[in-house]
Simulated scan of single mutants.
Amino acid sequence: MINPVGDILLNNNNYFTTVYENSEFVVINKHAGINFHSEDGEFGVVVAAEKFFSCKLYSVHRLDKMTSGLLLLAKSSQIAALLSALFFEHQVQKYYLAISDKKPKKKQGLIKGGMEKSRRSMWKLTKQSNNLAITQFFSYPLDSGKRLFVVKPHTGKTHQIRVALKSIGSAICGDPLYGEKSGHYDRGYLHAYQIDFSLNKQDFSFKALPESGLLFNSDVYLKTVQDIGEVNDLAWPKI
């Protein structure tokens, strides 16, 4: 299994840090506040990565602007098709870290419901099964009334984790759409922490901590993440 967690990262720029590169794909640690697509004359993270790696890159999943963390980009349409199939078949395991300043209705479990468009580019969770979103989570106490969430989305819907945590009363700190006091925080506190998959009979696992955010760099947060250990080994709620 490839797991370069302890390796020296390859570069730093305003958009991302490189975590891993081979002949088939790259894995980058996207910075918070960076658009996925180019907008308003400013490069998105995919274009920035293409310029850095000097090759065409193909996206197979995406991250919201406020969300930092691991992003997988294919180097060919053939590899992109293989990776997209893995995502479609739920063969890619993704784990996120989030911080909320609201106590959840339940400390761990499964959040399941239909995703429906709401107002101001927002989404909401319904009791219907249309556009079904399934999210597993654990939460842990931090200090000052905050909680750390370790989240595993089974599906990949727009704003899924943000809406799921909002639905249990724990909107993510700094979330400009779903948070109540987003301006009180220096960033949106959602981070794509780990991604695991198999490609061409080789197992890959990548992990990267957030690189920005006062809460993400606090001692209590870092100790809690360390104490949790391997997130893929947690007793995840059954779907």
Rank of each mutant, 00 (worst) to 15 (best):
G41N: 14
V5I: 14
K107S: 15
K117T: 06
K105I: 11
P153W: 02
T158Q: 05
G174Y: 00
G188W: 02
L63C: 04
G188I: 05
V231T: 05
G179K: 00
K201N: 12
N217R: 11
S54Y: 10
K102Y: 12
A171P: 09
Y15D: 09
K181D: 12
A32H: 06
I34M: 07
G183N: 15
K112E: 05
V220I: 12
A133P: 01
Y15N: 14
V19R: 00
F25I: 03
T18A: 06
S54R: 14
S77M: 05
F149Y: 13
F206T: 08
L97G: 04
V26K: 04
D233W: 13
M66H: 10
N22G: 09
V26L: 04
S167I: 00
N200W: 13
L165R: 00
L142D: 15
R120T: 05
Y140F: 14
I161N: 03
T158M: 07
T135G: 06
N200V: 07
F16A: 00
F88K: 13
I195F: 01
G69I: 07
V5E: 11
A80T: 10
T126N: 02
S129W: 01
G109T: 08
M66Y: 09
L73I: 11
F87S: 01
C173Q: 00
K201F: 06
S54C: 15
E50D: 14
T126K: 01
L72A: 08
T155M: 11
G174T: 02
A98K: 06
F52N: 13
G213V: 10
L9S: 13
T158A: 02
Q194H: 06
K124A: 07
I195C: 00
G169N: 01
V231G: 04
K107C: 09
G113M: 00
Y58F: 12
T155I: 11
G145E: 14
F138K: 11
Y15F: 14
L72P: 01
P176K: 02
K207G: 05
L57W: 05
K30V: 03
Q78N: 12
N131I: 01
S23T: 15
K107W: 08
A74P: 05
L70S: 11
K94S: 14
H159V: 02
F36H: 07
Q160M: 01
S38C: 06
K201W: 05
D233E: 11
S170C: 02
F16Q: 01
W123H: 10
E230H: 09
V19H: 03
H31V: 02
G113A: 03
P4W: 04
L199H: 04
N3A: 07
Y20C: 09
S23R: 14
F138E: 05
I111D: 09
D186V: 12
E50L: 07
N131Q: 04
I111A: 03
N29E: 13
S59R: 12
K107D: 07
V92K: 04
L234C: 08
F149K: 03
L222P: 04
D7L: 10
K127D: 10
T155G: 07
G41A: 06
L142Q: 14
F197W: 03
Q202H: 08
N232V: 09
K157S: 03
V60R: 09
Q91G: 05
L215E: 14
K152P: 04
G179D: 00
K117A: 09
L72T: 08
M1L: 12
L70A: 00
K105H: 08
Q93Y: 15
